[in-house]
Amino acid sequence: MTTIHPKITEVLTGTFKVPAAEILPESTMDSLEMDSLAVAEFAVIIKETLGVSADSEKLYKDATLADITAYIDEAVDSAESEATVPVSNTR
């Protein structure tokens, strides 16, 4: 996985003013100086814009942007194939 979900880049640069040059597939929220409050806010924005729920501490805090992209892509795909089943936020 070498691409980053465009929404991740958009939120990091737009809301959190992270310089675009620092946003790499191997970056983590920690390496981007996103603290737990910022990551929790990031999770709300992802939920509100893409409908993807996540426990931000478990799934986003230490993951790379490539990991987060994979998680979001999978969640979006499964939501599309099982449109009536909401994405769980507890898995």
């Binding site: 809301t15 959190f16 003013k17 992270v18 310089p19 100086e33 996103m34 603290d35 409050l37 910022a38 806010e41």
Partner: peptide
């Protein structure tokens, strides 16, 4: 304002 305040904190 967010640019002026600086990254990672303006959101809060």
């Amino acid at each position: 304002l967010d640019d002026a305040v600086g990254g990672r904190t303006a959101f809060r």
